[in-house]
Design a protein around this nucleic acid. Structure first.
Lengths: 206, 206
DNA sequence: TCAAAAGTGTTGAAGATACACCCATGG
DNA sequence: CCATGGGTGTATCTTCAACACTTTTGA
């Protein structure tokens, strides 16, 4: 029976300073030693591929309990110089609150602005491109943007997430009308005051 | 280095008698001996996963040079009773002209109406569901329907493909207006006469 | 009182939907 | 001449896009 190594790699998105960021780790071992790469690792014998993605994410970065979706499987024979490795790529969306953690097999887990990435190991640049495209498309017909926000948020924060992902400015009034039509937002009797006029907080209704 | 068997499976769609059909093969060996399954097989050492899908499709069914797109990767540990097998699923769209072929490791390749499938081996029923959903969604924003037609076709044929995939009847005038807006159809000076009033043939403009 | 972000409606254009009759052909 | 599928236009509704001013607060 023919056999290959199978890995998972996860593109972890968040929003920092109103810009789309993603999580990279610096490789300690060869190949691509010292280069940045997506968190990921080998699928174990008795776990599903989905479970492997959850586990690797937690082990390498400390991120857990987040939105995680399978992206695409990359299976070019030469994509890993060590030999035949097929990777199942995922992407995750996390609110800007979770703490990162470094472990022995992956140090320097850090956020990078999606528009200003360093050179990546393996074919990870291509995986990131695929993930960004998927995220952009998904935003148009789902409420996936909420996964990038804390439980309570202002409409301006929500809008700036959409703008960060789409890369274009949106009209404030049109955005508010549309998002409230499709997303069932619950206005809270709470306001965030960040210096200027306080902004009302909302919650995503279940 | 950890290691799993990796297969590809392909959901091959076509339209027969104005209904969505897909291609199944009867399994000769164990497990699920005698049951129907999707065409597929193991990924070889020196081919990409995409190439494996193309090769298996050709080997098992004779189908070649068709629209083929990666669908999803299924990696539950127990999905194959023989052991750990991860499968990368694809779907293909073929015009109703290609001849089928049977080989030694897969006999009885045959078309089944998508709404009237036999019980399938492994988790292939789930893969088929995933493929049908993807195809339905994709129809809304791409011209993927053309892949199911021969080079020259009538607008009624094109409409009936959309109806077969979506499962709902469409308005003839609205359909024609919309499809000609987004698809760049070239009307040909040729008509198909199937008994009644001849219908004009069209071609998908490159 | 000024700077900064919050909040709020209307209008026009484009796209989607609903709907019915005449035409050309083969039998 | 009749049965069958081919072919065509309009009116309405819904959705999307463009656009500017007032309000509240902290400094």
């Amino acid at each position: 029976m023919n056999s290959c190594a199978v890995t998972v790699d996860v593109v972890v998105f968040t929003i920092l300073e109103r810009k789309l960021h993603l999580l990279l780790i610096r490789r300690l071992g060869k190949p691509f030693q010292g280069r940045f790469a997506l968190p990921g690792g080998f699928v174990l014998e008795n776990e599903s591929v989905d479970d492997a993605a959850v586990r690797e994410l937690r082990e390498e970065t400390g991120v857990h309990d987040v939105y995680l979706e399978q992206l695409y499987t990359f299976g070019e024979p030469k994509r890993d110089p060590r030999g035949r490795v097929i990777t199942v790529a995922y992407y995750a969306l996390i609110p800007p609150t979770q703490d990162l953690r470094s472990t022995t097999d992956a140090s320097d887990a850090a956020w990078f602005a999606a528009d200003d990435l360093p050179s990546l190991a393996f074919d990870h640049a291509r995986i990131v491109d695929t993930a960004r495209t998927r995220l952009r498309n998904k935003l148009a017909y789902t409420n996936v943007g909420f996964e990038l926000l804390p439980e309570k948020f202002t409409l301006t924060e929500l809008q700036s997430i959409h703008e960060a992902i789409l890369g274009t400015p949106l009209d404030k009034r049109n955005f508010r009308r549309q998002i409230q039509q499709r997303a069932a937002l619950e206005p809270l009797q709470a306001w965030r005051n960040t210096g200027r006029k306080p902004a009302q907080l909302f919650r995503f209704k279940v």
